[in-house]
Design a protein around this nucleic acid. Structure first.
Lengths: 339, 339
DNA sequence: AGGAAATCTCAAAGCGCTTTGACACGCCAA
DNA sequence: TTGGCGTGTCAAAGCGCTTTGAGATTTCCT
């Protein structure tokens, strides 16, 4: 069933039916009623591809999903997607997800944009000096970045959390508790949030004339295995750290396993603060020793970014171009005075 | 840059350029070379919406993502998607994801199909007597179901794991170890896998003249909280169970917390077998007491389903209509002789 | 050299929709 | 009667691509 058939069925022109459907004012209310009823009865749905071709819009947000054999799926990605979806469903928007090798993201993003399949783009996993930024700006398609790109002019639309502030505050808390030997379990070194969190920690330490030793820094993929390995390394250090900052509750999971295996007590021998993206699976309050965290909901960020993206496409603006969300520092039992 | 412009630039007709691009034989090799070079230089990409409109195909798989405010994101969904993506990227396919309220899935699926945005559909979270099946069959669009629908004629293309066999085998192991008091922590009762796993357990018990008491069955959303709650309930039973079957490592996470809190020893006081979807975050071997599991990789299933879906769209068939994968029973330390 | 076959290219139709510009109609004021 | 104004409707163009059916050119065989 297409527009033509429907209009013939009704004895109307395609124009009139199309206008009736799209809420144009110059259609008789009675006619509109009739059209709407016929749509219900026939189950007619406009062909989105045709709609897109004609209007250039079709209610879709494009995003690139990094994937490859051996590339671990990332809980953060799913959680964020859920946030996007929660908002998108309210506006009858959908997603076009282009899977791409992590090394091919710039090209994949460009393909996605030029394909004419999407109205707006969403970009995450930002790096320092991210090459996608220049490409996006040249594209004349709305986009919002989750995170920022350290080293690039911040003249693009983004939503980020205050990573530097989060880890600065976390470090201050530990300093006040008397800790002086710090270690950091971070995400991959090239990612923006990792750079900023590290800077936050270093800034707080510097105020007390302290430094973050090289061998007390681990920058890895954020899996629990890597957390375990890093923590085991830290614990074998001659002058082992007592205060750990950890970029994810996933890393913390492994780290804590290492602490337990070493027969140490979390919150006494070792204090740990992790960043909490509010993953439903990894609630800090459910850890055997509840975790002190810096918290910011990934899902909420997804909702907000979808709002901005959809709003821009629908011209329901204006939206702030840049948003920086503060994180909350929530003290639980994994932090205590330095031993 | 569109086809018209490109063809003018080259001094060729649109037909010739289109044919050169799509590998038709009636184009001079030299001409094709020239076209390909121009594409490289100009960065031309065909508009997918137009391509779809003209051909009816555009290289996309559609799926519905259940979402709603308060609806927890599901790690299983992300993991499966990664599998789909891993295969899709090899064929330059993408996904169209329609977020939808869980109560609205049938309608959402229909919208997605009729929208003309997708070439094939993928469906998961199957229920007993699933109403989507009839709709899908009436659609004349390729689809593959992950799981099955208990109570419906199995005359549709699916990939499922042998849930019944998995839990039958698991129960047999525990029976051989002398356990007689069983409990089950299952997924939502209306879901197909939950029905079959329960049947598998009941069948194994029946062979020994045993039954699964009502108060030793929990059928809930599969979160760690629910796992905790269910296990706490089991432990307070006057004749408390010693053998637990658990539909997910996520549930097991909570369950084990309850066991620990009660001061009991896993693998001694309580034996537990969980089904393991091979989530990167929840490796059974990384639990403090490594978990005995029935294993089947969700991601591998995603890859396989994408293969079948894409193969069907590309007419690169034939593919088996139905596949039933055996699970592996892997014995670790969470199972031991009945106390 | 002649003609058929093979090779290459083209103009135009069509995919299903939106949107423009025009037309027909009834109504009221001049 | 004429003109102007809203209201409701329509035919047709256009979005960017593929594909058909036909025309032009070259190649090959007798």
């Amino acid at each position: 069933m297409n527009l033509k058939q429907l209009s013939e069925l009704l004895g109307l022109s395609q124009t009139t039916v199309s206008r009736a459907l799209n809420g144009y004012p110059e259609v008789n209310e009675a006619t509109r009623e009739r059209v709407l009823r016929a749509v219900k009865e026939t189950g007619y749905r406009p062909n989105k591809a045709a709609q897109r071709l004609a209007t250039g819009k079709a209610g879709s947000i494009g995003l690139v999903m990094p994937t490859a054999p051996g590339h671990q799926s990332d809980v953060h990605f799913g959680e964020f997607l859920t946030g996007l979806g929660e908002e998108a469903v309210r506006h009858d928007f959908h997603f076009v997800i282009m899977p791409a090798d992590p090394d091919d993201e710039v090209a994949a993003l460009r393909r996605l944009a030029i394909s004419g399949n999407v109205d707006a783009l969403f970009v995450a996993y930002m790096r320092g000096h991210d090459p996608r930024l220049a490409m996006l700006k040249s594209l004349s398609m709305p986009f919002v970045v989750h995170g920022r790109s350290f080293g690039s002019e911040p003249d693009y639309p983004y939503l980020d959390i205050d990573n530097e502030g989060a880890f600065y505050d976390a470090a201050r808390l530990l300093l006040q508790l008397g800790h002086t030997r710090f270690a950091m379990m971070n995400g991959p070194a090239h990612l923006d949030f990792a750079i900023r969190r590290r800077n936050g920690l270093i800034a707080a330490l510097a105020e007390r004339g302290l430094e973050l030793p090289e061998d007390c820094t681990s920058q890895t993929v954020m899996t629990d295995e890597e957390g375990l390995i890093a923590m085991e390394r830290f614990l074998q250090l001659p002058d082992r750290p007592t205060a750990i900052l950890c970029s994810s509750t996933v890393l913390a999971l492994g780290a804590i396993r290492a602490v337990n295996q070493a027969g140490l007590k979390l919150g006494e021998d070792i204090s740990l603060i992790a960043h909490d993206d509010v993953l439903p699976l990894l609630k800090p309050e459910n850890f055997s020793v509840p975790l002190t965290t810096t918290r910011s909901s990934l899902r909420a960020a997804g909702v907000r970014i979808a709002q901005r993206l959809i709003g821009t496409v629908k011209q329901a603006g204006p939206f702030p171009e840049q948003e920086l969300w503060k994180t909350e520092l929530i003290v639980r039992a994994s932090t205590g005075p330095a031993p």
